[in-house]
């Protein structure tokens, strides 16, 4: 079903070092229900994220920041270009990878904190957050202990731990989501506005957690609308506006 993508030379000729490399990536949506109207999102996206750094995607709402994260995560397809990631010691191109490889990458290489938690009926917050650890082979008891530790750190009231998160507030759900994404020690972590609905105290906890991930050598790619958080965690900010399909003349 996916069309093979021809590798194209990028303007920057030198090979970009990085755990995660986006090379001339283009995304657009073709709306068949609207007479095949094509909605351009981004084109020519190229940057690398190295181990131990946090790269922040900046730019206006609608610039395509979330779309870039979703392409790396694999929930959006890539129209053109390559997304290279080191997985199990070899570089692979996520733009053309088989679905089974993408699933493997999600288990072992790329973690993701989405903007909203997709709650599962009847599954407790603790089990929702511990699931990726258990899937990665951590013994369930140990996984739950580690999850409880992170819930406590994120100030999630203990009475909520055994309840399904569907009825939680936005901030409570987001903390379950953060724990779920931060618990596994994966080489790459994608963060889609993880602090948007958190209060100051918990934002500071997340900032500290991001610093620890950097220390541990994780490559982080994130979106943060909150300027304080962005300034505290970003090593570089990439303005996604410059990848707009039809750039506005300066």
């Amino acid at each position: 079903m996916t069309t093979p993508v021809l590798s194209r030379a990028t303007e920057t000729a030198d090979p970009m070092p990085g755990v995660l490399v986006l090379d001339d990536v283009t995304k657009s949506f073709t709306l068949h229900l609207r007479d095949g109207l094509t909605l351009p999102v981004v084109s020519g996206v190229g940057f690398a994220v190295r181990a131990g750094e946090c790269v922040v995607l900046g730019g206006q709402s609608g610039a395509g920041k979330s779309s870039i994260l979703k392409m790396v995560h694999g929930s959006y397809g890539v129209v053109e270009g390559r997304i290279l990631v080191m997985h199990d010691g070899a570089q692979i191109d996520l733009a053309t990878a088989d679905p089974r490889i993408v699933l493997q990458v999600r288990r072992r290489t790329i973690g993701y904190v989405s903007q909203f938690l997709r709650a599962i009926p009847r599954v407790s917050a603790l089990d929702v957050a511990a699931e990726p650890l258990i899937r990665a082979g951590v013994e369930p008891g140990t996984a739950r202990d580690r999850t409880a530790g992170m819930f406590a750190r994120l100030n999630l009231p203990e009475r909520l731990w055994s309840l399904p998160p569907a009825t939680f507030s936005g901030g409570e759900q987001q903390r379950v989501n953060i724990a779920r994404g931060f618990l596994p020690d994966l080489p790459v972590l994608l963060l889609d506005e993880p602090t948007a609905s958190l209060d100051q105290k918990n934002r500071e906890v997340v900032v500290a957690m991001i610093a620890e991930k950097k220390q541990a050598g994780t490559a982080l790619l994130g979106i943060f609308h909150d300027a304080d958080v962005r300034d505290a965690v970003a090593d570089r900010v990439i303005d996604v506006g410059r990848f707009a399909e039809s750039p506005v003349a300066a």
Binding site: M1, H32, L33, K70, G74, S75, Y76, G77, P99, L103
Partner: peptide
């Protein structure tokens, strides 16, 4: 394809519908 990709970024006209 991957379930979340087919649902979040459907390609075929019928899937989009």
């Amino acid at each position: 394809g991957l379930t979340d990709r087919v649902l979040d970024d459907p390609q075929a006209p019928y899937t989009q519908l």
